[in-house]
Design a protein around this nucleic acid. Structure first.
Lengths: 336, 336
DNA sequence: AGGCGTTGGTTATGCGATTAAGCTAGGTTA
DNA sequence: TAACCTAGCTTAATCGCATAACCAACGCCT
């Protein structure tokens, strides 16, 4: 238990011990073609020493020398991810890795705009994927100027077109549309939609609302809107309001969790679900299958993460702007 | 829309444009004390050019030169995190940042043991925090040899003591103990405990089971054990088995999600919960408050993330082994 | 004997930054 | 007038690694 802090071994250490130059060590350890002219005997000796010292190449030093960038930075929303997003992220990480890139997640950034952009740019990633709540035009410009591709999650692809900002978004309007149509098919004409108050979620909620409105317009149904916080109390408040103004026939609860809270509040109020009120969530997480009565949902299926990774990498290598929206909504009816 | 891939500006670029040496630029941009001898006029010129070029220092180059390491690597379990873990991670990230460290999350590592350790070590982090399912003694040894502190999540602190491996664990035995005692206080003497089959979860499940057994032994109650997958079908299977062998009085469902699935299956089978069977989860996530009937739970409260960050940093700077178990269980009874 | 090819390496350079140690021109002091 | 400051820089080394270019020694051929 020596108290001297160990320093990682370097090729210089290996070279010294093996009695060769650092160049030779580098050639051997990288199986470099030029190193074909190093006899097996020397190679073995170098490798043995590297092994003994526990040598691991210094990724930063290497990429500084070669100028290569293989880091993709994923900056978390300031919102706790659902299992859907987390699962996608895992597979996406794997897919990127197979293409030679390393995806790192960076959470809870305190800054936004130029300040945040500077802290990301310091890491010299090949690309940054961040929520649009973290991005400002000036921040995006800074990153692009440094040759870093930027993907906005939640940014409007139409608005981004031509600015250099790429997008990787979920089409919330389409989700709302699918949910709305499903409720309308069940015969409901008096709909209610919940929109989260929490800022990062609100934007998505408004997109989903827009989709429901579009569906309702097709058949001339009405849509009420309620703001809701992610808490049982807020759900109870909305149900209480419905007590005053009359219950809606069909409710789209933004996602499964908000819908789940509404379900609890409805049951507490003695409302028959789905007999009196049909309730629909979105994301189709395991949660839906726990609730009794069950919850209908809109499952969001994503294109293969491999395909998305491929297109992101293409954008990096070509330096081009791409707009990806790899999720498509599939209604899952569990209520009759 | 030039198609030339832009390269980030360097201090050399700035120096050239400002007509000074790179040393001067470095002094100016770092407000170095030795740079006190650079007149405001020159400083302003350098800063203006840096700004115009969108200069951002190259973190890797800097840390290569200074030898400093400020990266803390958090390697995800191969399991989707619950909101509890995610929320903790956010605050922990912030706290570490305030202490000058950057926490990066790295997910879906395909390797384990030495192979994984090598890929982490290449990044020259100050510390690695990883699930014990990713760590082997050889891998830990490699990291320690490179001066990288290693924190095992889930590793047994008693076994780790003296090996150099630090631990950051949840005391699952204590959670089981709290759950068991709560159920026993309600008068139940015939208990059932669910253990997840999924390998990373199984270990935690067994720890929780041990705690329940300890509580049961105190009063001479019986404990049945059931393996369960995270699926409605598996839950239904267990409830069906109870149909054969008789219902238990109290059930500890490992966590809220497994307990939620069990609740659904019990209701489907027409079992009165909590009248006939008392059910308890753990983690006290929002889910508990959606379910009807409600679920009792064991909330796991963590010490302030700031305090944990402080102790992790202390371990890094001192090079010492620490054992942290900053979560304590608090039963939350929602069933009567 | 001189030229050539091959083997088995070495030397030198640079990636972007930091930083200790100089160096020069002008002014001040003895 | 020589010695000494001081301001305002610059030079050069270095971190760990990759890689193009070079070179010494040897054997072989002509």
């Amino acid at each position: 238990m020596t108290s001297i802090r160990p320093r990682p071994a370097t090729i210089t250490d290996i070279a010294r011990q093996a009695g060769v130059s650092t160049a030779t060590v580098s050639y051997v350890l990288n199986d470099a073609p030029a190193g074909a002219r190093i006899p097996e005997e020397t190679r073995a000796r170098v490798r043995a020493i590297a092994d003994e010292l526990g040598y691991v190449p210094h990724a930063n030093a290497r990429s500084l020398r070669t100028g290569s960038r293989d880091l993709v930075l994923y900056v978390h929303f300031d919102v706790v991810h659902g299992p859907l997003a987390t699962g996608f992220l895992y597979e996406f990480t794997r897919a990127l890795r197979d293409l030679g890139y390393t995806l790192m997640q960076y959470g809870a950034e305190r800054h936004r705009g130029v300040k945040a952009a500077r802290s990301w740019a310091a890491l010299r990633p090949a690309a940054v994927i961040a929520g649009d709540d973290r991005l400002t035009p000036a921040g995006v410009a800074l990153l692009l100027k440094a040759g870093i591709r930027v993907f906005g999650m939640g940014s409007d692809p139409a608005a981004a077109k031509g600015t250099g900002l790429s997008t990787l978004v979920m089409d919330h309007r389409a989700i709302g549309l699918a949910a709305g149509r499903d409720l309308l098919e069940r015969g409901y004409r008096d709909l209610a939609v919940v929109v989260p108050v929490d800022p990062p979620l609100r934007v998505m909620g408004e997109g989903r609302l827009e989709g429901v409105r579009e569906a309702a317009a097709e058949v001339g149904a009405s849509v009420r809107v309620h703001e809701m916080a992610y808490s049982p109390g807020s759900a109870a408040g909305i149900v209480a309001a419905w007590g005053e103004e009359g219950l809606p026939e069909g409710v789209f609860g933004y996602d499964d969790e908000f819908a789940g809270l509404l379900l609890g509040a409805l049951l507490d109020a003695g409302v028959d679900v789905p007999g009196r009120v049909g309730l629909m969530g979105a994301d189709d997480v395991m949660l839906c299958r726990m609730l009794r009565p069950t919850l209908s949902s809109v499952r969001v299926e994503s294109e293969s993460p491999e395909e998305i990774a491929r297109r992101v990498v293409e954008s990096i290598t070509e330096g081009t702007e791409v707009h990806l929206s790899p999720w498509s909504p599939v209604p899952v009816r569990r209520q009759t």
